[in-house]
Design a protein around this nucleic acid. Structure first.
Lengths: 413, 413
DNA sequence: GATGATTTGTTGTTCCGACAAACATATCAC
DNA sequence: GTGATATGTTTGTCGGAACAACAAATCATC
């Protein structure tokens, strides 16, 4: 129940009783002291990563480990170029100053986000720092093969620049669709027109780097959890409204919820009305068929607008039809959120994209709808807040997937 | 990523970056080797607990630990009377026979389930074995104070019988309502008429034992996960239909999902229709106002019936009105499940109580409804199965809560 | 600005637990 | 019976974290 090596962590026994395969068992051979070491290195590195830099004394407190142990751990991480020690924080406090432990510049992860009109590739260092960002427009919607090829080209160029000063630990892909996280198969990405495309495998072959893939909104959730509005919150729901629909992710018990295959969090396809419009997904009356950006843009007489522009236009408008549409959409959103809150009891709801815009346009409406939901009086309301991370959200989230390997086992470095 | 001390387990870093209080940090003092030991003891004990007994050689394989280490661990557990070694399994296999490691009889947890007309208390040993079960009927619906008093009386009687042969490690309470798991406050138990009753604290004071409390359906989920239909499945949804409504629980990533306060899994209050009947919970059109046992009993001309009798009656009936009502209820159930599946991507749905009955009466109907849901073609269907644990479900689940302390730290024993 | 209190970094030692190797034992197959 | 195989048992080794004692750097106070 309490921490193991430092209160910062808890052992959680794997719950399944699935027999361990010989291959799996073989992986666990070796000295257990090594494991303890790896774990403690991981704990320290994650703390530095998440905070972007902390005094070493703070690491000692937060991990509960001995001063000398933390010194040794940080020393090893410095040697592996995963962290650097910096000048002590200038603060008014008695006692010997403690050197800052900062994320190192060397380790980076590559983030990839294929879209219908472009492929974006980013280079992200520890601490969620986006170092580079390349957006390559495509003439047509790329096939998975084309996307892998284009991405591999960009990655090759970036590596030529980056290495050997930096070390690329892997690639994380944020896919607008259903992704089987186990092997990175894109089961269905409707807007890209991809179905059953082993995109992670393609990209791994083309680049020689380890590749992991997941749903874009799930990775957005991860990013918000580590660096954004969800920092320090162990249970929240993230919902993002984009041009291609509504994506979502669930953080539960401090863990991103993937579900059995990685398809969890598809709150955009929550059915919000029994006799609604048919959705491409096979259902009808999905949240994302009822709550869309287009009707709002049309009513506002806008051609195109990003979330900020849309929000400004909504706030400036006093058109009754606009207000009615905003209310209609917020009602649907509130319905979906109400049921999700009921199932998940989150502490927080984070809204991104145009969902943030319509919520900001009528700040109290959504709260009221949610408050009218089941059990809300007894349970209490989660706060509803906008995203904190802007354009870099997906880059950070996807890179997190790539950097996870070093964060979990810093001796890889 | 892989296991630490034995592949059976994974370290999971605590995700929140909340600063560790000095008190918390103090708890983690001490030799880290102790921690490793405690964890490995815990792993072995849990394996024995879950399986009800395994050869020691199997423990070696499953944990990935060294033979000699496992021998030492089992030895310590035997010394602490948490497990016993038995005769080797008679099997046709070369090699020296390995002694069976069986759950010890000494450690027990006490399970409590307050209901509107009775309080049930059970004594459960490791391996989910229900040793005793006392049901004390009450003339009126008990208040929290009364329930605590009655329970304390029963517990005192049981302890007089049990001790010192057995050792009671704590009390787990399954409450039909919203329970704040952190401190066992019963936030709202509508049928009992309890509101903001610190039931766990009351019972702890009255018995002197550590008490934990949680929602009954959540504990049912835990029981099904450890010993029932959900064994070995890391992502499933459990839904139970009882006389007082519909309760649910979610197992996600191998962990019971409690949410921010412990109110997660309230799928009985999923809103399934926009203009439905008002529910006591404050919402309207909740699943449990639309899907109820009473209309079925009425149509069948039954006065009262348990799940099995209801199921038999449903299967025997050829009344059109009955069928229509079953379909109506399954449609609502399918709607709620469809949205939950969409959010959580479970591998399995476990139905208990009369929900299992109506599903069994029309086996394909629910599957069809769920299959028509959003993204179901791409995602694939979870299987829908009935519960495996019968009357002992809540006893086992609640006791699990009590035994969790020893399972987590066997050196307490 | 010296002095003491306080906090933290540094160094050498100790202790504990898991592993490894060698041996012992019990079963199966022939 | 004999060999192969798997597992229990015993003893020694090794690694990592804790601990203690000391050193260093800051603040507070006079």
């Amino acid at each position: 129940m309490s921490g193991n090596l430092g209160s910062y962590d808890v052992w959680k026994p794997r719950p399944s009783e699935s027999p361990v395969t010989p291959a799996e068992a073989a992986k666990t051979l070796g000295n257990s002291n090594d494991r303890v070491r790896v774990h403690n290195l991981s704990v320290v590195l994650r703390l530095v990563h998440r905070t972007g830099g902390v005094p070493r004394s703070s690491l000692t407190r937060q991990t509960g480990l001995n001063r000398s142990t933390v010194a040794a751990l940080v020393g090893e991480l410095v040697e592996r170029q995963l962290v650097v020690e910096g000048e002590p924080d200038a603060r008014n406090q008695v006692g010997r100053p403690s050197p800052m432990t900062l994320p190192g510049d060397r380790p980076v992860g590559i983030a990839v986000n294929p879209e219908i009109d472009a492929i974006t590739v980013g280079v992200v260092g520890l601490g969620g720092r986006v170092l580079r960002r390349v957006r390559r427009a495509t003439a047509v919607i790329p096939t998975a093969e084309q996307a892998a090829e284009i991405t591999a080209d960009i990655v090759a160029e970036l590596r030529a620049e980056l290495e050997p000063a930096h070390r690329v630990f892997g690639i994380g892909v944020a896919v607008p669709g259903l992704v089987r996280v186990a092997d990175g198969l894109v089961r269905l990405a409707p807007h890209l027109g991809w179905e059953n495309q082993p995109f992670a495998a393609m990209l791994a072959r083309a680049t020689g780097l380890p590749v992991r893939a997941a749903n874009d909104a799930n990775l957005g959730t991860l990013a918000e959890s580590t660096f954004g509005a969800g920092r320090g919150v162990s249970d929240f729901i993230y919902l993002n409204g984009g041009a291609s629909g509504i994506g979502g992710g669930i953080l539960a018990g401090g863990e991103l919820l993937f579900g059995a295959d990685g398809y969890a969090g598809e709150l955009g396809h929550t059915i919000v009305t029994r006799n609604g419009i048919r959705c491409h997904c096979g259902g009808a009356g999905c949240l994302e068929t009822e709550v869309r950006r287009e009707p709002l843009l049309e009513l506002l007489g806008l051609d195109d607008a990003d979330a900020d522009e849309l929000e400004a236009a909504l706030l400036a408008s006093d058109d009754r039809a606009v207000l009615a549409e905003v209310h209609r959409q917020l009602d649907h959103l509130g319905f979906a959120l109400g049921n999700a809150i009921n199932a998940l009891n989150p502490r927080l709801i984070v809204l991104g994209g145009f969902l943030g815009s319509i919520s900001a346009a009528e700040p109290d409406h959504l709260d009221r709808v949610v408050a009218a939901g089941p059990l809300s009086a007894a349970r209490g309301q989660p706060s509803i807040v906008p995203t904190e991370l802007g354009a870099s959200l997906l880059m950070i989230g996807a890179a997190e997937l790539a950097l996870e390997a070093v964060l979990e086992d810093p001796t890889l470095g």
